[in-house]
């Protein structure tokens, strides 16, 4: 073949060259799909036909005031506990990187303790703090106190719940943030240093924004986990979503319908959080030429969650 012929520009394969092959048959996957379809149909059938699910009760309570205020309390706990967890966790992660052994050792000890004891125990512990320290005061260490308060008064149910959830979360977040910081290549920090940036500016402007790409997905998972973990503080008689449901069914004995009410709300919020997570991942993934997972569920999510007709990720966007 001559060179000129090779170099000639063509915009389509020659006629008859196109391959129109029949798709490969996959009998095993069809059998599997049939079995799963039958099982799913059975599940749907029993959900509808078994009267003991009492769907009308589910409907009655789904938007009742007590359940909605419980949902609100759950959301509040989730947001505040994650806020404490992320801020304190970032501080702990930076402390662990410190060359000062007291700082890095303290962070290590903190993480060791809070990851090594059950969260339920920690929550109950904080709630009963007053039995160890009846009075709490602010002042000079080992010196005089400026202000003193009754611990029972200060550590309310909400405070105990937030301390338990937040301090525990910080230990997990610290490890996530640390992994994110370590994932930023050394050359990025050196380049920033060579431009005259102080360690503080380097961390804030160069390292943390890039670490976010690694940090966000697990933090998203942790947030979804936290939403469900808040149900633990029902042991403090804290009227969050689960305890609100419990309060109702302890009166009416409609246990299953009310657990279903709570579960549906957990599922709704989890779904919304997952969609938000995908958007945030996309934001922090900029400049990498990589996109968030494009499975069918995520694709649905993106469509359902597009602000002001923003472009879909599958089209345009950065390419290598």
């Amino acid at each position: 073949m001559s060179l000129t012929e090779q170099a000639r520009e063509v915009d389509a394969p020659a006629p008859g060259d196109e391959i129109h092959a029949r798709r490969r048959r996959q009998p095993a996957s069809w059998v599997g799909a049939a079995v799963v379809a039958v099982l799913a149909a059975m599940l749907v059938h029993t959900l509808i036909r078994n009267p003991r699910y009492q769907w009308s009760v589910v409907g009655d309570y789904f938007t009742s005031r007590q359940i909605l205020s419980g949902l609100l309390q759950t959301l509040e706990l989730t947001v505040l506990a994650m806020l404490i967890g992320v801020v304190l966790g970032t501080v702990l992660a930076i402390m662990r990187q410190s060359r000062n052994p007291i700082l890095s050792g303290t962070a290590w000890g903190y993480i060791w303790f809070f990851r090594g004891t059950p969260l339920l125990v920690q929550v109950i512990f904080w709630y009963n703090l007053a039995s160890l320290y009846p009075r709490l005061s602010v002042g000079i260490p080992f010196g005089p106190a400026f202000a003193t308060a009754d611990a029972n008064h200060l550590v309310s149910r909400l405070t105990a719940a937030l301390l338990g959830l937040g301090l525990n979360q910080a230990a997990y977040t610290a490890e996530i943030v640390r992994a994110g910081i370590l994932s930023v290549p050394r050359g990025q920090i050196e380049a920033a240093a060579s431009l005259g940036m102080t360690p503080m500016t380097r961390m804030r402007r160069i390292v943390l924004p890039q670490a976010m790409r690694i940090i966000i997905p697990p933090i998203g998972n942790e947030t979804i986990g936290m939403l469900k973990t808040t149900s633990l503080v029902s042991v403090l008689a804290m009227p969050e979503l689960l305890y609100s449901a419990q309060l109702i069914y302890s009166r009416t004995y409609q246990t299953m319908p009310l657990l279903i009410v709570a579960s549906i709300w957990y599922l709704i919020v989890t779904t919304v959080l997952t969609l938000i997570q995908t958007r945030i991942e996309k934001h922090f993934g900029r400049g990498t030429g990589r996109r968030p997972d494009q499975g069918a569920v995520r694709r649905f999510g993106r469509r359902a969650f597009t602000f002001h007709g923003a472009p879909r990720v599958t089209e345009g966007g950065p390419t290598r």
């Binding site: 290549p185 050359g187 990025q188 050196e190 380049a191 920033a192 240093a193 060579s194 431009l195 005259g196 940036m197 500016t201 402007r205 160069i206 924004p209 890039q210 790409r213 922090f284 900029r286 400049g287 990498t288």
Partner: peptide, 30 residues
Amino acid sequence: RAGVGMVFQQFNLFSHMTALQNVTEAPVRV
């Protein structure tokens, strides 16, 4: 260091910033 520029073998451009942001970051922040 601010008075001494350095160009690296592996470029080390800030990967989360555009070319323009890479060039403006230090003059603005430092």
